[in-house]
Amino acid sequence: MIMNEKIKASEVQLTGVNGEDLGIVSTAEALAMARKLKVDLVCESLMSSPPPCRLIASGAAKQAAQQASKRDRPAKVKEIRLTPRIEDHDFETKAEQAHRILLAGDSVLFTVRIQGKEGQQAKELLERLIRELKPSGRPATGIQLSGKQAAVQLNPLSI
């Protein structure tokens, strides 16, 4: 986002604080108007000539840019490892941790290490986790049993 003195165009298409069209004005005049009103001059796009600029309350432009970049970031996949014979308290801790991750907008990959004939226990554990986390996430795929591990990925509901 290009703001205030960083705008290099000689003239801009200016929009006021309340959305009113102020027409094409010189950049120096637009900056003077922004200083007088104690707001920021923000360039919305450099693709047109003259570039469209807007007068926005100080700080609101940065906040809007941060929220836009937060929405644009790709979701991360965070892995949580478990064992089939997990204690109830540890299970609740892992489920709460996964719940927080899902609410933050990231995906969770549960991986259960299997030794011997623990495949059915691992599958039941993952099914229990899916049921517990139903309000905050949904499975991306089914439970995958392969070799020495079982896995399932949960995506947040907002994706």
Rank of each mutant, 00 (worst) to 15 (best):
T93A: 12
A60W: 10
L37K: 06
A9T: 00
G19R: 03
G19A: 03
M3L: 15
Q66I: 13
L55Y: 00
P139A: 08
R128K: 07
G119H: 11
M1P: 08
L103Y: 08
V42L: 02
V12C: 01
N4C: 03
G23H: 07
S10L: 15
L129H: 03
R71F: 06
K36N: 07
E124A: 15
S107V: 04
A57N: 06
I114Q: 03
S158P: 11
E44D: 05
L109M: 09
L22R: 04
M33Q: 10
S49E: 10
L129T: 03
L37T: 02
V39A: 00
R71T: 04
E11M: 10
T111C: 11
L102Q: 05
E11G: 08
S10C: 09
S45F: 02
A151L: 14
Q120G: 05
L55A: 02
Q121Y: 15
R71G: 04
F91S: 01
A150T: 01
Q13M: 13
M33S: 08
R113P: 08
L82F: 07
S69I: 14
L145I: 07
P52E: 01
C43T: 00
K8W: 11
G119T: 08
R138C: 12
E118K: 05
Q115Y: 12
Q153D: 01
E127D: 09
R85K: 11
E20K: 11
L31A: 00
P51Y: 03
T27S: 05
S45I: 03
T15P: 05
Q121S: 15
T83G: 13
V152R: 04
C43L: 09
L129D: 00
P135V: 03
P135H: 04
S49Q: 10
A151C: 13
D106K: 05
A30G: 00
S136I: 08
S49I: 13
Q63Y: 11
P135L: 04
E20M: 10
A75E: 05
L145H: 04
G142D: 05
K94Q: 11
E79W: 09
T15N: 06
D90M: 14
I24R: 06
K36C: 05
E79I: 14
S45K: 01
L129E: 01
E92A: 13
A68Q: 11
D88L: 15
A9C: 02
S136A: 10
K94C: 14
D88N: 13
K148C: 09
E87A: 10
K36W: 07
G105N: 03
D40C: 07
E124Y: 15
V42Q: 01
R138H: 13
L125T: 02
A122E: 04
